[in-house]
């Protein structure tokens, strides 16, 4: 990993809007061929980082190198971007729209590539249809195609799974994994922690413009105490020795106090509910996310 080429190198990035500091001395790097999760609560500064990387807005301080170089307009052809703010031209056809975006990315023989990608996302039959007639999910897939059409080296996808049903979520996840296998680098900005956990090699979590977690998923998880998973029937209530319960009704994640013995907890649980599953495991990213943000 250490020998791999750096695709993105961000150093001491700072940005304020009026008096509000949105990014505070942020540094991170992304290496070639990884899926990199960019996480943080709403308003943490994720979109601002992405816009600065793409030179859509300028940072107040800091330095960014992409593909080892300072930003240059030509580098945009090596980057594919799916913005969080979704939209397409409504009055033109899928083909016209994708052709325009492809032309701007300097794609030759764009129609072949458009056909290839429309096939891949199952929208070949909609090529000549006007975009306004497509469902929201279909439009999102068209936007993903627009981000992939020029075979970019670096993909920056802001919430790529939001608004997709499970089948399409799986389709998009499979495409991303294919692209990773081809050696593409993917930056994934999302709130969907389960997706991050399953697809990302490394993550950066920011909160109020500051870096709060950074590294590989295993490294991060190893810094957090294991938690207890319980599947049960009944009413859980408060349990002595448990610091925090994330209760879903039939399923709960329990964070134990420092000196609590899990065996003791199991005994107490059996007294109050019907236990169907009892398991110690590393905390989920979701738990870590909630803990980090709440404790900030």
């Amino acid at each position: 990993m250490g020998m791999k080429e750096k695709i993105l190198d961000v150093k001491n990035l700072t940005k304020s809007f009026d008096a509000k500091k949105v990014l505070d001395n942020l540094s991170f790097e992304v290496k070639k061929g990884v899926v990199f999760g960019l996480l943080g609560p709403n308003g943490a500064g994720k979109t601002t980082i992405i816009r600065i990387i793409l030179d859509i807005i300028r940072a107040d301080h800091g330095e960014i190198k992409i593909f080892g170089e300072k930003f240059d307009e030509n580098l945009k052809e090596k980057i594919g971007y799916l913005p969080e703010e979704r939209g397409l031209y409504q009055k033109i056809t899928v083909l016209e729209c994708l052709k325009y975006f492809a032309e701007l990315k300097n794609v030759k023989k764009s129609e072949d590539k458009i056909d290839f990608w429309l096939d891949k996302v199952g929208l070949r039959d909609y090529k000549k249809k006007k975009i306004e007639g497509l469902s929201k999910g279909m439009q999102q897939k068209i936007q993903l195609v627009a981000a992939f059409i020029h075979s970019p080296e670096l993909l920056i996808l802001d919430e790529p799974f939001s608004g997709l049903d499970p089948i399409n979520t799986k389709m998009v996840k499979d495409i991303l994994l294919d692209l990773k296998r081809e050696g593409k680098t993917i930056i994934l900005s999302t709130h969907q922690m389960d997706q991050v956990e399953r697809t990302c090699d490394r993550i950066l979590m920011i909160n109020r413009g500051k870096r709060v977690l950074y590294g590989s998923l295993d490294e991060i998880k190893s810094n957090y105490k294991e938690s207890l998973i319980v599947e049960y029937e009944g009413d859980l209530g408060r349990i002595e020795g448990v610091k925090k319960i994330n209760d879903y009704g039939k399923y709960a994640e329990l964070s134990l106090e420092e000196d609590t013995d899990p065996q003791e907890i199991l005994k107490r649980l059996i007294e109050i509910v019907g236990v169907r599953r009892f398991e110690m495991k590393a905390p989920s990213l979701n738990e870590i996310f909630i803990e980090v943000v709440e404790n900030a």
């Binding site: 816009r51 793409l54 859509i56 945009k76 980057i79 913005p83 979704r86 939209g87 409504q90 701007l104």
Partner: peptide, 17 residues
């Protein structure tokens, strides 16, 4: 701006262009 295509465009070319 309303149909939110501007950000896709700005990832392909500069605001001046």
């Amino acid at each position: 701006k309303e149909n939110k295509t501007v950000e896709i465009l700005l990832s392909s070319l500069s605001a001046n262009e």
